[in-house]
Design a protein around this nucleic acid. Structure first.
Ligand SMILES: NC(=O)c1ccc[n+]([C@@H]2O[C@H](COP(=O)([O-])OP(=O)(O)OC[C@H]3O[C@@H](n4cnc5c(N)ncnc54)[C@H](O)[C@@H]3O)[C@@H](O)[C@H]2O)c1
Ligand SMILES: NC(=O)c1ccc[n+]([C@@H]2O[C@H](COP(=O)([O-])OP(=O)(O)OC[C@H]3O[C@@H](n4cnc5c(N)ncnc54)[C@H](O)[C@@H]3O)[C@@H](O)[C@H]2O)c1
Lengths: 217, 217
DNA sequence: ATCCTTTTGTGAATGATCTCACTAAAAACT
DNA sequence: AGTTTTTAGTGAGATCATTCACAAAAGGAT
């Protein structure tokens, strides 16, 4: 609850850095420069150095960064040791895919329960995660504070109210609905149809160069 | 290939506006104010007016915007009449979910074919979309220029090269790998594990207000 | 026709993020 | 030990995006 100084843009890149540093460590690399990192994660090297600098001087001039040290540092900063439990609401196409995916790899989050209103799904386990009836939400949710929302858009608003009443403070919303929440609740929207449409729009209206080279975003 | 003036941030919101305006029309509404729109899509009303203003004066002072006219205008701007065909690479958990989802609702994009290397999947149809063997990519891809990538991260770099050689210019990448592409190719990353981790990070480190009200992002 | 209300469109201020370009420190080399 | 090379950290400026706040236009009412 401390660091107010880290820009949101930086915070969003931290998990990315963290994951790549993990890869490096598994490969046995002990040092890395901002330029190498830049090539790998496709973020400008100056931006990477700036990002790291918000946490103090983590590197050594003329040497780069020590992978081990950086990882150790980020593990603390990103609370990697502390597991955050997540509930998934709506075991449909998308929800099922998430349940089968192991978010725990390089990650400190775990889906520990799922809810649906379809009696055929209730009682089963998908990817090791138990599926409960949505009517039992109040009973089962415990002190989980993060939810993934993968129900039809028409259900989103009502469900959100219910989730918030039951202590949810963070929602990853895959529904196209733009849900309304009290100000202490944080919602991140991932709108796949919009992403696809935006990509197509950029392709048509923002022509890129025609030569070799790299571009991000 | 004209409007260079529209900020990327604006371009990304256009599909969102478009979809909501469609809803309004189906509800029979003929006019809408920037404030109403703001409440619905959770974007500041001044931002909405600014966004629209890049396209000229689309509204009337003291009245708002005519839904029909705005829709007509966006339909042209977003090339809604022109269907963009998309290929999906990797019919696994996530890929299957996308195939079963109808992106065409309020949308001008359609997944028309999928590829996998798993013989059990090849030859089937999922959500009406034929699944071909990845070896037949060159033969089947035709002049599709947009691909959705849902294969394992380890395959991403090689597959990307292959896609680009076969005319792909836009990639929606769900793989954690940050792929390298020539500069005429556009990649949008959607990294679900990062999104989840970022949400958790924000929850822990960026406490929000404690009272009632709305907040976006 | 006049007045009051609504709501756009936008100049200017603010805020956020990114990037250049340089200093200084450490490493690597000779 | 001295020289060269590498590379972090950062001040300052550039770029991009959001928001304020208000004049002007149009609608609606009487
Ligand atoms: N599948 C995709 O590729 C995709 C793409 C973009 C957006 N989305 C959005 O993601 C959401 C889920 O999509 P999907 O394809 O998985 O849909 P789906 O219909 O396959 O799954 C929805 C699930 O939610 C359950 N459900 C419905 N109402 C519920 C309630 N009140 N409480 C608990 N469970 C309830 C249903 O039983 C079903 O299992 C939708 O809002 C959709 O618009 C999906
Ligand atoms: N499922 C999720 O919720 C989730 C979440 C975050 C990220 N991801 C990422 O999305 C990607 C796909 O995830 P998934 O869960 O669907 O994986 P998956 O293993 O279920 O599916 C991968 C599919 O790709 C196919 N494939 C593998 N190599 C191929 C190749 N060279 N050519 C063609 N097809 C090939 C496989 O046969 C399989 O059907 C992964 O990179 C994963 O990290 C998935």
């Amino acid at each position: 609850m401390e660091q107010h100084k880290i820009p949101q843009a930086t915070a969003k890149r931290l998990p990315l850095y963290y994951r790549y540093l993990n890869n490096l460590q598994h490969q046995g690399k002990t040092r890395v420069s901002s330029q190498e990192l830049s090539d790998a994660v496709k973020v400008d090297s100056a931006t990477i150095r700036r990002d790291f600098s918000y946490f103090g001087a983590l590197g050594k001039k003329g040497y780069g960064y020590n992978v081990e040290y950086l990882l150790h540092f980020f593990r603390e900063t990103l609370d990697q040791d502390e597991l955050t439990e997540v509930a998934l609401i709506g075991v449909g196409n998308l929800g099922t895919a998430f349940l089968k995916y192991n978010f725990l790899k390089n990650n400190n989050t775990k889906i520990v329960m799922a809810f649906d209103r379809d009696a055929n799904k209730v009682g089963t386990k998908i990817g090791g995660v138990p599926v409960y009836h949505i009517d039992d939400l109040e009973e089962k949710i415990g002190d989980i504070h993060v939810a993934i929302l993968t129900i039809p858009a028409s259900e989103a608003e009502t469900m959100t109210e219910r989730l918030v009443e039951n202590g949810i403070e963070g929602i990853l919303n895959f529904t196209p609905a733009r849900i309304t929440v009290p100000s202490h609740v944080r919602v991140h929207h991932i709108d796949l149809a919009v992403e696809l449409q935006a990509l197509v729009y950029f392709l048509k209206h923002y022509p890129l160069d025609n030569e070799k080279g790299n571009k991000k975003e």
